[in-house]
Design a binder for these strands. Sequence first.
DNA 1: TACGGTGATGGAACCAAGTCCCATCACTCG
DNA 2: CGAGTGATGGGACTTGGTTCCATCACCGTA
Lengths: 189, 189
Amino acid sequence: MARWEPNAAERLAHAALELFAERGYENTTVIDIAQRAGLGKSTFFRHFQDKREVLFGGGTMNALLAEAIAAAPATAGPLEAVAHALDAAGGEVFTPARREFIARRQAVIAANPELQEREALKNLALIASMADALKRRGVADLTARVAAELGALASTIAFERWSRTAAEDDFSEIARQALDEVRASTAFC
Amino acid sequence: MARWEPNAAERLAHAALELFAERGYENTTVIDIAQRAGLGKSTFFRHFQDKREVLFGGGTMNALLAEAIAAAPATAGPLEAVAHALDAAGGEVFTPARREFIARRQAVIAANPELQEREALKNLALIASMADALKRRGVADLTARVAAELGALASTIAFERWSRTAAEDDFSEIARQALDEVRASTAFC
DNA sequence: TACGGTGATGGAACCAAGTCCCATCACTCG
DNA sequence: CGAGTGATGGGACTTGGTTCCATCACCGTA
């Protein structure tokens, strides 16, 4: 079924992360990445829209969260539905097996403003996606936006904690805890 | 005091907005911008870090909001302090005189993902700046982050409404109203 | 076995963003 | 009037990103 070496995109993403970690994002050329993956520059841009995107390619995250929100029990309030989504993220994306990889990726992003910009935009899209999913459940517009925003904040906080854990803690549990703390904090505002 | 034609940065920003509105961001070259301002490419990059930054240059916003939060009455809670900051923004930045200009700028940004990325990052910095200012008032870390996030959301909503108003409504009032609505919405989460 | 179709690839030519470096020019001060 | 200062102009260069075309590996079919 597979021609040539398969998984070109995956190989490129892997090579890119390696090189970024070794020499930094700025000191790595697209040609460098392609060469390490045994490919050419053209092929790189056939698989990724631009150099940044090679770190953000696996993005089915939006759909995953939206579906999880849609699938939450009808009795669940907005934040409960969001909690459902974070649960799903813990089960499918932020798994113990990927923790190391994701943490290294995050370190690379943290070291480069260009990548932070891309991440910020992806995060906005994620929030919009969650808010839309909530509205489709009949949640009022503004409430949906607030809930999505609070969910994103909880997710960020949970991610910070989870990626620092040495133990193989479950992201879902950490996220639920973070979301509870965030919800409690709104009372003090 | 002034040599040559003064206000090079201002002239460049003005020329850039004109050209972006005329032909779009992507179809405008840095050289085009510089030429319309009567300057050279080198001079453009001497005044702005990159092509995107020409639309975000006037950014003393962070300091403005942080100072307004610091200056809020000691009795004010986190969200009241944030409201104070939005008030200041309405008085210094989102003034009736600049409404038209800012709205056109926003239209250009809305039409281009590259510019949206930059804006998203600036917005993150703004939130961090507000959260820091709140912490310096003794607000608990998490509460500060939540309040800053809610403030940013209120600001975004207020801006959407303000830039669409034909009348010369006061941003501060709209923002206060939006913040109240956001606060109320947290109860339904 | 031979042949054409398909899809992934490689590479060259090209444009624009951004950097570096140096010459130049306008103005100021002694 | 001459030296210093700071903004400018422009050219050479690297890299990101696009476009186009030739190539190559595999597949199905005759």
